[in-house]
Simulated scan of single mutants.
Amino acid sequence: MSARPGLSACIITLNEADRIDDCLDSLAFCDEIVVVDSGSTDGTRERAVAKGARVIERAFDGYRSQKDFAVKAAAHDWVLCLDADERVTPRLSESIERARATGFADCAGYRFARLSDYFGAPLRHGNAYPDRVMRLFDRRRGGWRGGREIHEHASVDGRVATLDGDLQHLSYRSMSDQLARLERYARMMAEHMHANGRRASIANIVVNPFWRFFRGYVLRLGFLDGWRGLVYAYVKTNYVRQKFIKLWLLGRGGRI
């Protein structure tokens, strides 16, 4: 059996005082918690310090860059990356600890399902679940790569295994919060795609949103989540439509 590696938890924050405590509590099994804060004014930093986290202040220059900075600031090579609105469930923490007891075997990273709470109940179907994410990895073999700052994801060179248990995601504080966030993400994605030479057509504006809805709500059984599944599918469909409309306008010199 290999030696039990140290494990650092890495979180980026901005005004998360109402959610940071539960997030940090779920990471009590880690050897270190690093919080990179980008100017909170609601007491987030103070609450994180009170929970034993090491807090670093850094101006925000993109989601990927901020997370990459947090990973590089960690004391240990094995890192577990969370957002402030996520919590490690007991079953997932047990799975992580079992893997750690083996020295993380021959893996470079681990993925697990993310279960989103949507207005009071979890979404267990559609595009929302299992939504597997790779958040536990050896930073010597990967990390938050690439130039895209929105919808960022980590990758590694080596084997990636799947762990049992869910990462709980308390996705949105309200419908207004969701709509505002998705509008911002649509703008950022359109700008990124445009900068990389991508252009949109009328077909993208019409077909891509339809396919997103049909795939999630029908093929992936999103309708089994009741009215929440319908609202989630519709709002996400509108995000895809916004993204391609903005990209279409950028390609014609328009302002978004």
Rank of each mutant, 00 (worst) to 15 (best):
S2N: 12
P5D: 07
S8H: 10
I12V: 15
L14S: 02
R19N: 14
R19Y: 10
D22R: 15
D22Y: 01
C23N: 12
F29L: 03
C30Y: 05
C30F: 05
E32P: 05
G39Q: 11
T41Q: 13
T44S: 15
V49N: 01
A50I: 00
A50P: 08
V55I: 13
E57Y: 12
E57K: 09
R58M: 08
D61Y: 07
G62C: 02
K67T: 02
F69M: 04
D77I: 03
W78V: 00
L82V: 08
D83E: 10
V88P: 09
R91G: 07
L92G: 08
E94W: 02
E97V: 10
A99N: 06
A101L: 09
A105I: 01
D106V: 09
A108I: 11
R114G: 01
S116R: 14
L123M: 08
V133T: 13
R135M: 04
L136T: 02
F137N: 07
F137D: 07
R139M: 06
R139K: 13
R140C: 05
G143V: 02
G146D: 07
G146C: 14
I150T: 15
A154C: 11
A154T: 14
S155I: 11
V160C: 06
L167A: 04
S174Q: 04
S174W: 10
S176Q: 13
D177Y: 00
Q178I: 02
Q178M: 15
L179H: 09
A180P: 02
E183N: 11
A186Q: 02
N196G: 02
R198A: 14
I205R: 09
I205K: 08
V207R: 00
N208I: 04
N208T: 11
P209W: 04
W211S: 07
R215D: 05
G222R: 08
W227S: 14
L230D: 03
V231P: 01
V231K: 14
A233I: 00
A233V: 04
A233Y: 00
Y234T: 11
V235Y: 05
Q242T: 06
I245V: 15
W248E: 00
L249W: 12
L250K: 07
R255P: 03
